[in-house]
Nucleic acid binder design. Structure first.
Length: 283
DNA sequence: TGCCCCCTGCAG
DNA sequence: CTGCAGGGGGCA
């Protein structure tokens, strides 16, 4: 799925588009995707949009919030009102919506639409009352946000040491330790820190915790800067791909030469997920 | 604290 | 055909 930078990219794009719009209708094309009574959403205005870890929240009037998790293949694509250019109808979209992966469609009072597409159907949308947000099981188990100012090296180290026997790359992806890092940025952060992803958390020196901490922040910020990472599915709120993978050092680059040392990037499996690293740069 | 599973589609 | 894919919940 979209990881922190991808969800953040969607949040920023969507905020510019739908804050202030009123939901007119909701069409649910796949019932398992949506939980809650969609009739509650009718005529509710969008107040603000936020992100926590990889979850997107849309706050509505009447203390209602829509929670979205895109999991592996989810997309949230906004299609503005149809415009006419040179006498022909056109939109911002690069692809036709809805498509066969569209699971839910939100229609706003100005006729613009928000499409929730999800090929693999792992993603979900839930309606939650704001009073329950703090109690929500999913949200309350999420670790600190790595791009917040209070995410210091000390906080990072303390969190990771809760799972000291895990390989560092696997620990980085544990959402209860740190929010928002997934398979792409875990590999990239380890490369930036020059740390072998197979090293156990307990083996890291203070200096290595510091490099790892910087590597996480650097990788996530680079991801946001390039509009996220598109492997197969990710698109931003306007339907555009992200270009972070063009700039990545190791993710998806197995058998390719390392951009730094020229050595060959290797792919291994950790906890059932692919990990990419440069054995020469990362120790 | 590890597996299997939820799904669909694409590459090999 | 098998294996693999930005995630993570439920189960031993």
């Amino acid at each position: 799925m979209p990881e922190l930078p991808e969800v953040e990219t969607i949040k920023q794009g969507l905020s510019k588009k739908i804050v202030g719009l009123k939901i007119k209708d909701v069409q649910i094309l796949n019932s398992k995707t949506f939980s809650g009574d969609e009739k509650q959403l009718k005529n509710k205005k969008v107040k603000s949009i936020w992100r926590k870890a990889k979850v997107l929240g849309i706050d509505l009037e009447n203390n209602l919030t829509l929670l979205f998790h895109l999991k592996m293949s989810g997309q949230l694509v906004y299609q503005g009102k149809q415009r006419f250019v040179g006498g022909h109808p056109t939109t911002d979209m690069t692809q036709e919506m809805p498509n066969k992966s569209t699971r839910v469609i939100f229609e706003f009072s100005d006729k613009s639409k928000l499409f929730f597409n999800d090929q693999r159907k792992f993603g979900w949308i839930r309606i939650i009352d704001n009073g329950q947000l703090k109690m929500d099981n999913f949200l309350k188990n999420l670790g600190p946000e790595p791009l917040e100012k209070d995410f210091t090296v000390e906080v990072f180290k303390k969190q990771l040491l809760k799972r000291k026997n895990l390989p560092i790359k696997v620990a980085l992806m544990d959402q209860s330790l740190i929010s928002g890092i997934g398979n792409i940025y875990a590999s990239e952060a380890c490369f930036d820190a020059k740390i072998d992803p197979g090293r156990k958390v307990s083996e890291l020196s203070d200096q290595e915790f510091k490099k790892m901490h910087q590597g996480i922040i650097k990788s996530l910020e680079d991801g946001i800067k390039h509009g996220g990472a598109t492997r197969a599915h990710f698109v931003d709120a306007e339907g555009h791909k992200g270009y972070f993978l063009d700039y990545a050092y190791v993710y998806g680059k197995d058998k390719h030469p390392c951009k730094v040392c020229g050595g060959i990037i290797k792919k291994i499996t950790q906890a059932g997920r692919g990990t990419y690293y440069c054995p020469k740069c990362q120790k």
